[in-house]
Design a protein around this nucleic acid. Structure first.
Lengths: 219, 219
DNA sequence: TCACTTATTTTGATTAGTCAAAATCATTAT
DNA sequence: ATAATGATTTTGACTAATCAAAATAAGTGA
């Protein structure tokens, strides 16, 4: 059985590879995990010995198929738990990430399965992140973000790519949760600004960094 | 923050002191925790340093008020989780003990509170064990067992003092879950047998050890 | 090519929890 | 009172995960 530390390394590697394909450098992994670089090196060597990652000294590391499988399992637990906490226990979506961070390591397959059934085999968590299947398949609807989608076209927000509670609360306040329909009215690269119009809400301006965190899909 | 190992030691000490008041010997604690006696000694010394137990070398240990407080907190989590798993996720009551054993260390006060609310502030878990309040109070309804209660008097089963899945499944099959009304028809000390009659069920015989595990209360 | 910067790896230590086995202590039985 | 028995404690060692700081490698600039 993988310890929860191992599960966290694998999960982080998976997310990082998803965001930036290719080898993950030790320094990068260390900062994601909140440890010093030497610790990451030691850990990755151990993971390599278990066949969960490939390790190229002084270059970087990446998940093996076995490692990815395990990472997806963890991610499935994490995301199902998040949705469960929101839907069944009425927690706020801005706080469930932290809670799930602990529960994802403690929950058995049996309990997870019940949760999955209770929720009706959902496809995405409260942030719009896809929930991997028990077999380890994930559906990435390759979307644009508010920072690069078409102007004036109504789009549906499908995903919020930032788990921070304060950002999520901000999104909440602006009425920009996943599912909401928005249109981008204009972009001003000089001002680093995107003018958007959420359905039934007031027009507002987002900086490009914030806009890029809101993934959208055409309707 | 107490590690889950520490939480388990405290929980086990509490349960043992409840069953057999007085100091708990190292050998006893070790066997309850499934470790070697030397390990228990080392651990108890550390717990004593943290002010969670009193330790009398070569005699035994017992919880301090602080230790008991923490133990009750763990027990509250354990039992609320058990009930939640049965009521909300439809797990079998014979399997929830194992599941709760892990979850009790991962669940936050906030989530626990939601569960408590969702279940309507229940007083007992699926085995009839009382759920300590958030403040750490427990209601022990001091009851008799089927091994020593009055004959012929209808009694309500209030508690099953054995968490083992196979025993619980047996109890289930005989229709002897908490809440059931039963009468003891006779006892034969020589044969070590108790003849009981569960309401709407067939008469059956239990050995004294098994009968003692079924706590009952007068109606 | 040589020095400099920066990331990575190595080394030595630390903490929590554990075991095996030797040493110690406290009781019982003779 | 002494020896035997049995529990307890101590000692030394191990694993997982970590950090601090020194050593090493790789790439960059001059």
């Amino acid at each position: 059985m993988a310890t929860s530390t191992v599960e966290n390394y694998l999960k982080q590697l998976y997310l990082e590879q998803q965001a930036t394909p290719g080898l993950v450098a030790m320094g990068r992994l260390a900062s994601l995990m909140g440890v010093v670089p030497g610790t990451a090196t030691t850990m990755v060597k151990a993971l390599a010995d278990s066949g969960l990652v490939n390790y190229e000294p002084r270059t970087g590391t990446q998940l093996t198929p076995a490692g990815q499988q395990l990472a997806l399992h963890v991610l499935r637990r994490h995301r199902l738990v998040e949705l469960f906490l929101v839907k069944v226990l009425n927690l706020d979506w801005s706080e469930v990430h932290e809670e799930a961070e602990e529960l994802e390591h403690a929950i058995s397959d049996k309990v997870l399965d019940r949760i999955d059934t209770l929720l009706g085999h959902p496809a995405a968590d409260p942030h719009g992140d896809p929930i991997p299947s028990a077999a380890g398949d994930v559906q990435y609807s390759q979307t644009h973000s508010l920072a690069d989608c078409e102007l004036h076209q109504p789009m549906r927000i499908s995903r919020v790519v930032d788990q921070g509670a304060s950002f999520l609360q901000f999104i909440e306040r602006c009425g920009l949760r996943p599912g909401t329909i928005v249109r981008v009215l204009s972009r001003d690269p000089q001002a680093d600004a995107t003018l958007i119009h959420p359905e039934n809400r007031e027009v507002l301006t987002l900086g490009t960094t914030a806009a890029a965190k809101l993934r959208v899909e055409t309707i």
